[in-house]
Each structure stands twice: as structure tokens, then as C-alpha cells.
Write a protein that binds this DNA or RNA. Structure first.
Lengths: 215, 215
DNA sequence: TTGGTATTTATACAAGTGTATAATTATACT
DNA sequence: AGTATAATTATACACTTGTATAAATACCAA
């Protein structure tokens, strides 16, 4: 009975912070924002609740950090995979579209996570800033890909039109992503990427589907 | 001091229920789901909190009813205005698209209202059923309008393709609606309807913009 | 080995939450 | 006018929430 190791481990602040952030995200995704209480978060990270206040000045601080973490993760997940492995601009654009419309990006947890945060965006200016920046970051990447693909196909497009195309394509992707996550089971496997490719292709005036199955 | 009228008014159940639902909706839209407490709802409806439990078996019941109310309202708002005043099928489709991309449908309150509910959809089967039905109802109307417009233009389209077109157009509208509501000020007046018309037109292969300014 | 210190736990608290129950009171009907 | 009844209020309760503060403890440096 007298045998007992250390009762807890001291970890570097950065590491603990990330663990708490990940706990927060998984909890919001799983049980909704309402389920992400300080006690639940601490429990999932295997610490006691007091620690949260030590690393974050308030719960709102933690939520904000978690939101930022999640959003940049999502964008990376859509943009990154195999960015260099595609030869043509067109196939890079196609990959961007399909990446955003397949798991793990399309996922019920992801959508409800996003929705959970949306409420706080209106109230908290910091949240609003993150939201705005994430949206524009994503859309700008998309716009660049579209511009490249059109240039490659020798289609001349004024930049004023380009903005509208990017907004529209972004909307298709967002809309399909949302519906796929909110209604799992309502779409066949591969249906969303297919529809996404065809729609984006129709909007910008290129056939994206022919370039798909290219690894 | 001895002078005092009736301390409260008895109203028909149906009327009180709706008043409570409207209070709930305005409160969620304004302060988020977290702000919609039984006390706040009752206060906004000028009643005491006990009355909520008299008309609804639980708060969840009220939330569910409010969700149902809101969703059917949104669909009506998009579909209804001037349904008969349009001559061609194409202009009816165009009106459907633009209606959903203008105020009052596009509105920060509306979007955060929708997002607030989304969390509860995953947990509550009744919510899920309402969500599913609302989505399909909206999409079916859209699909019918698309089918009519294509028939009118003498473009033959198999029903298997029609489904994909409706999903895609629905996604564009949803995505634009979401972005317009989540980022008020990021888009010029009339920009969303314009982009919506052009995109839906491109997807189904019809020029919807020429038919617009028709009252 | 011995402090020193930031990390971590332990405990407490005030405010707000949804719910339950009994006491009032308006109103329709006889 | 009187009464039954459903609507409405009033009050209370048990529980959860975020936050605050003090005590304990692991780990680094000397």
C-alpha cells in the first residue's frame, strides 16, 4: 500500500495546451458544444479541471484556440495531400475539389464541430477574425487553382470574373461538404466528389472529370 | 392601490405555443442556443417560466417545435413569393434561386439559428427526421423546377442525371446562403443572387440571367 | 541533497440551469 | 351568480456550470 509512483506528470506547457485543445475538439464533435464543459474536457485529457485555468485564462480562450487549430487543420487537409504529385494545373484543381468532398474532411463530426463554433463567431470578435481569415485563405487557394487551370487551357478570364468563379466553386464545395456531413447515408460513396467535379467544371467551363483517377 | 386589473390573460393553447416558439427562435438567433434559457424565453414572451412546462413536456420539446417551425418557414420563404406571377419555367427557377439568396432568407440570424440547431440533430432522432425531411422537401422542389425548365428548353435529361443536378444546385444555394449569412459585408448587394443564377445556370446548362428582372 | 518554482491537484463558491409541485386566477359554461 | 377547469403564477429544489483560491507535488538547478 505504501508503494506509489508519482501522482501526476508535469508536461511542457505547449504539449498540455494541445492535449486540452484536442480534448475540446473531440468533445464538441461528439457531444456538441454543450457537452464541452471544463470538467469533461479535463477528464478527457486526464487532468483535473483546475489545470485548464492555468493554461488558458478562461474557457473562452480555450475554445478560441481550439477553433483556430481545427480550421487550419481542415484547410491543410483539403489543400495538402499530393500537391506536388499532380502534373497539370487542372488535375491539381480536381484533387483540391475531391479532397474536400471525401472523408476525413466530409464527416458528421466535422460539420457539427463547425456548426458548434458558428454560434460563437457572432459574439466574439477574435472568433470572427479567425473565421474570416480561414474563409478567405481557403477561397484564395481555390481562386489561384482556378486561375492556373484556366490559363493552362488558354482561356482568358478577367480577374473580376475570377472572384465570382471562386465564390461559386467555394459555395458548391461548402454546400456539398455540409450536406454530406449533416446527412450521412444520403449519398452514395463517391457521389459527392463526382458531383463536385462536374459542378465546378461546369461553372468554370472545364471538364475536370477526365483528369481524375490520376495518382 | 386597491385598483388592479386582471393579473394575466388566458390565451388559447395554440397561440401561446406559437408565441413561445417565436420567442425561442428570436432568442437563439440573437444570443445563440446558450442564451435560450427557459427563463429568457418566458420573459420574452411575457409569461413566467412555469408556463413553458405546461405547454411543452420539456425544453427539448419546445426546441424541436421551434426547429420545425423555422425550417418550414424558410422553405416557404424561398419557394412561395410570386410563384404564379412568372410565366416561364425558367423564370420560376430563377426566382427560386434568387429568393434563397436575398434577405430575409440570407441573414446572419438565420444562419446562426440553423447552426445552433445542427448540434442537436445528431443526438435527437426527431430532430434528425425533421432535418432530413426539410432537406429533401427543398431539394425536390428544386429538382422539379429544374426538370420543368429543361423540358421547356427541349433539353432531354434522364432522371438519374436530374438527381445530381438538383444536389449540385442545392449545394450552391446552401453554400452561398451560408457564406452570405456568416460573412455579412463580404459580398456586394446583389452579388450572391447574381453568382447563384450564373452558377446554377452553368450547372444545368441554361442561361438563367436573361430572365431575371421580370416582375 | 536541497531548495525553488511552475505545474497540478483539491476544494469551495456563487450563479444559473431545467424541472417539479402546489397555490392562484381568469374564463367559459350552467 | 356560481362553479368547474384549464391556464398561469409562485416557489423551491437538485444539479451543473465557470471561476477563484489555496494546498500539494514533480522536476530542474545548484
Amino acid at each position: 500500500m505504501s508503494e506509489s509512483g508519482p501522482k501526476f506528470r508535469r508536461e511542457p506547457a505547449e504539449q498540455r495546451k494541445e492535449a486540452l485543445i484536442l480534448s475540446t475538439l473531440s468533445l464538441i464533435a461528439e457531444k456538441g458544444v454543450r457537452g464541452a464543459t471544463v470538467r469533461a474536457i479535463a477528464s478527457r485529457a486526464d487532468v483535473t479541471q483546475g489545470l485548464i485555468r492555468h493554461h488558458f485564462s478562461s474557457k473562452e480562450d480555450l475554445i478560441t484556440a481550439a477553433y483556430e487549430h481545427h480550421m487550419s487543420h481542415m484547410t491543410d487537409l483539403t489543400a495538402a495531400p499530393g500537391a506536388a504529385s499532380h502534373h497539370s494545373c487542372k488535375s491539381r484543381l480536381a484533387a483540391f475539389v475531391t479532397n474536400g468532398l471525401k472523408p476525413p474532411v466530409v464527416d458528421p463530426r466535422s460539420v457539427s464541430l463547425w456548426a458548434g463554433f458558428l454560434n460563437k463567431i457572432r459574439e466574439d470578435p477574435r472568433m470572427q477574425a479567425i473565421h474570416e481569415q480561414t474563409y478567405h485563405d481557403f477561397r484564395d487557394r481555390l481562386e489561384a487553382l482556378i486561375a492556373d487551370a484556366l490559363t493552362e487551357a488558354e482561356i482568358d478570364t478577367p480577374s473580376s470574373q475570377l472572384r465570382g468563379l471562386a465564390i461559386a466553386c467555394n459555395a458548391v464545395i461548402d454546400g456539398l461538404w455540409m450536406e454530406g456531413g449533416a446527412l450521412p447515408g444520403a449519398f452514395e460513396t463517391g457521389e459527392l466528389p463526382e458531383i463536385g467535379l462536374r459542378s465546378v467544371g461546369a461553372i468554370i467551363g472545364l471538364d475536370l472529370e477526365e483528369t481524375e483517377n490520376r495518382s
